[in-house]
Write a protein that binds this DNA or RNA. Structure first.
Lengths: 189, 189
DNA sequence: GTCTATAATACGATAGAC
DNA sequence: GTCTATCGTATTATAGAC
């Protein structure tokens, strides 16, 4: 419950999502969060790896809560998914195309080299995909189709964030939102 | 046309796609490619950044050629796109989920911090998306819809590679291939 | 629990011999 | 053109005072 511990994690999330895992140094995290190096190793004895896992878990919960919130606020599942993606586009744009979630960065950098981080990322993705899949089942899709559709939604979401940041333009995210909507609507394209 | 220069670029592509940009050291590239440090700075006076740009441009051409090849071999555009994605899934699996393209890694790590790399990634994505869009127009889709669909295809492709590597399972790529196919077929879902 | 100083190592880049 | 030795500065991690 320590507030300094939370500050360190929060700063880590911000820096990793902007720069990536390996480009973000412990010294930079310490400088920006105002914590000394001793505190970091007191709260995270395993060092950078443990801190990164904490950052992934924190983001995992935050995003999952965000998804649930939109899904509860908007009754129609298809409209809810559309609104979530557009909300994401607005957030990415508002950050000046610097934000896009720390999980994807670590998933790419550490998927092949760090098993612990890979599993943490995998679990986060699983949680988010399940949130979409559950809502799709509520909307009348069968279990298998909901699983398949939620995979497309999550994948295109992650990919569109990368495209939008590279182009510094929200168009890819908006286009994905529109095409997903078309795919989900009864009657189809 | 130097063969050593090509070796350096090829090794850079392999290492960056496995570990990312910042995690890949110049010394590691040199050791694996068998080149000495002097050669690297002779061929790439601007150092790591110039080398990374060369790696992106090389991958850009290779993938574009791969897309064109599948699109030429398979007459039906929708079937061709499906086959390209499944081919990608096979390649990712064959690499032991270590490969997935060096561009995405750099796009994420450098989008906010290195303008030169960001632009190189943006151009690569543009080239690939245009290849898909052109084929969709051939298949009868209007220009605007082809643009929007190709954005979804490229985004979901990139995202599904990340998901598949995190899970060490090609399912996400296969599910994306199937859902894209459903979306494209006349009559729809 | 909190903090500083420092160790051990790797990084990218450069200088200069050949 | 090719190569090696080395510089200066990062990095993660630790030891030990308070």
């Amino acid at each position: 419950m320590s507030t300094k511990r939370e500050q360190i994690i929060e700063t880590t999330c911000q820096l990793i999502e902007m720069q990536g895992y390996h480009a973000t140094g412990l010294n930079q995290i310490l400088a920006q969060s105002g914590a000394p190096k001793g505190s970091l190793y007191y709260y995270f004895p395993d060092g950078k790896e443990e801190l990164a896992v904490a950052a992934i878990e924190r983001t995992s919960r935050d995003i999952e809560r965000n998804i649930q919130q939109v899904m509860t606020a908007v009754p129609d599942p298809i409209a809810a998914i559309n609104q979530f993606i557009l909300g994401l586009a607005a957030a990415v744009e508002a950050s000046g195309f610097r934000a896009g979630g720390p999980v994807t960065a670590m998933a790419l950098e550490a998927a092949s080299t760090n098993e612990r981080l890979r599993l943490a990322c995998r679990d986060a993705y699983r949680l988010w995909q399940d949130a979409f899949a559950a809502r799709l089942r509520d909307g009348g899709f069968g279990a298998e189709r909901a699983e398949s559709l939620s995979a497309l939604i999550l994948a295109s979401l992650e990919g569109a964030i990368i495209l939008s940041r590279s182009q510094q333009d929200v168009r890819p995210l908006r286009q994905v939102a529109a095409e997903i909507d078309t795919l989900l609507r009864p009657g189809g394209p």
